[in-house]
């Protein structure tokens, strides 16, 4: 479904070169939920933008549904890290969710049904006529998710969607994303810097190093499909897995501390 091979991205601008990604290879199977975890500034957003066809790689290939990416691929949606800014402040919540459907030329009646269904799925049916700036951060995030769901993507990319919300909202949103994924069955790539979150959510975790960024490990998460904030997080296996991921990230940090960055 998603395939990334020897991907490298160097930003070149204002006389300064930044190697955001050095060598990334991994793939995501259809319908799978994969988390990419890595420290702040390691190039997670860059990776998503490459997958979404918003920027071109310096070298290496990106494939979505078997086709090389040269622009935004069909059937792929992104929930952006700056979710608040990704909603149009002059459109009501309903219109924001509806806009991609209009672009897709979905008939009016079907549009209304999809908007209603997806807003209900994120628990925001009541907020349909509000403007985004009348909502809290967590609610705005849910609108962005609703917009992605209504689009009915086959691939959904999420960029640290819960970095800016409080712990309780975050837990709720995590469960929401799991349930959305289980219900709609899309291929999910979820980017986060939070190790606990990645283990809790995913079936597989791709661990990135800090810059210069490579894949440290591709780790299967063999937790039961039905997850629960209390049960799962206190299970022995969860603790083991998160310990393992944490160790990997820590090791990488020490290593990059001794090898000077070129």
């Amino acid at each position: 479904m998603l395939k990334v091979q020897s991907l490298r991205k160097v930003y070149d601008g204002h006389g300064r070169q930044v190697e955001a990604l050095r060598d990334i290879t991994f793939s995501v199977n259809p319908g799978e939920f994969v988390c990419v975890v890595g420290p702040s500034g390691c190039g997670k957003t860059t990776l998503l933008r490459l997958l979404g066809g918003l920027i071109a790689p310096t070298s290496g290939t990106v494939m979505v549904e078997g086709r090389p990416v040269s622009g935004p691929p069909d059937g792929l949606a992104i929930v952006f890290q700056e979710y608040g800014r990704s909603l149009m402040p002059w459109l009501r919540v309903r219109e924001n969710v509806e806009l991609p459907l209009k672009a897709k030329r979905v008939p009016r009646a079907e549009r209304a049904a999809l908007v209603h269904e997806s807003l209900a799925a994120v628990g925001l049916a009541d907020a349909a006529t509000a403007y985004p700036w009348q909502l809290s951060g967590g609610m705005q995030q849910r609108v962005a998710i609703a917009r992605a769901i209504a689009f009915q993507p086959r691939v959904l990319l999420m960029d640290e969607p819960f970095a800016a919300v409080d712990a309780q909202t975050r837990a709720d949103l995590e469960d929401l994303v799991r349930s959305v994924w289980q219900r709609f069955g899309m291929t999910m790539l979820f980017v986060t810097h939070d190790i606990d979150e990645s283990v809790y959510l995913a079936e597989r975790v791709v661990i990135l190093s800090s810059s210069p960024t490579i894949v440290l490990e591709d780790l299967a998460i063999d937790l039961p499909a039905q997850r629960d904030q209390l049960e799962t997080r206190s299970s022995a296996r969860f603790v083991e897995l998160r310990h393992h991921v944490y160790e990997q990230v820590q090791k990488a940090k020490n290593r990059s501390a001794v090898t000077p960055v070129v």
């Binding site: 979404g52 066809g53 949606a77 672009a103």
Partner: peptide, 8 residues
């Protein structure tokens, strides 16, 4: 980016 992604 949003418009690009959602084909607007």
């Amino acid at each position: 980016d949003t418009c690009l992604t959602y084909r607007v």
